[in-house]
């Protein structure tokens, strides 16, 4: 019986939350209370039509293009470069303007339901629903999807909301 309960718990945990665990966030992404005084752009994740995924700092955006500072690694040497992408090259994108809190570890506290005896039938799903909702909700709380913003709004979350300054070559931005 206990094995069954644990199995159900694990399945539900993986099904509800474990399958979408807490993602990587770069160090330049501020916590929510520092978002107003952060000098960097948002962290943008791009899904390209060629099947590749790219993630990096949003440098600037205008009506037709997005500039993203990405990190590349060759022979253990990490280098940064800014690339320019046309919207037509993108399948989809999303961006985070602040680093969310990680509540995924607290899903494990649902196991406390074992102490509830037969009430576990009610309390375990309730725990999983609430804790997973909180974790998933938190993960997405400072996130926008490409469909939710236009290019003007997107530019407000870039390092250069005014666009790439005229005196700077975008390739030199690090």
């Amino acid at each position: 019986m206990l094995n069954k309960i644990i199995s159900i718990f694990l399945i539900l945990t993986f099904f509800l939350g474990g399958c979408s665990s807490f993602p990587y966030f770069p160090s330049y992404l501020p916590s929510s209370d520092k978002v107003g005084v952060n000098q960097f752009g948002s962290y943008i994740k791009l899904e390209l039509k060629n099947g590749n995924d790219i993630g990096g700092e949003l440098i600037a955006a205008d009506n037709s293009q997005i500039y993203v500072l990405i990190e590349t690694q060759n022979d253990k040497i990490i280098s940064k470069k800014t690339i320019k992408l046309e919207y037509s090259e993108l399948e989809d994108f999303s961006f985070y303007y602040a680093k969310p809190e990680n509540y995924y570890s607290r899903i494990a506290l649902s196991l406390v339901s074992v102490l509830h005896g037969f009430w576990l039938v009610i309390t375990l799903p309730l725990n999983l629903i609430v804790r997973n909702s909180v974790a998933i909700g938190s993960k997405n709380s400072f996130k926008y999807y490409g469909t939710e913003v236009n290019s003007k709004q997107l530019s407000q979350f870039a390092r250069f909301p005014q666009g790439i300054p005229e005196n700077i070559k975008f390739e030199n931005i690090k």
């Binding site: 909180v134 998933i136 909700g137 938190s138 997405n140 709380s141 400072f142 996130k143 709004q153 407000q156």
Partner: peptide, 16 residues
């Protein structure tokens, strides 16, 4: 609890 859970899922819409 469900409402709170749903509430917890809500994104903080924030524009500069």
């Amino acid at each position: 609890l469900s409402i709170i859970a749903i509430q917890a899922c809500v994104t903080n819409y924030y524009f500069r």
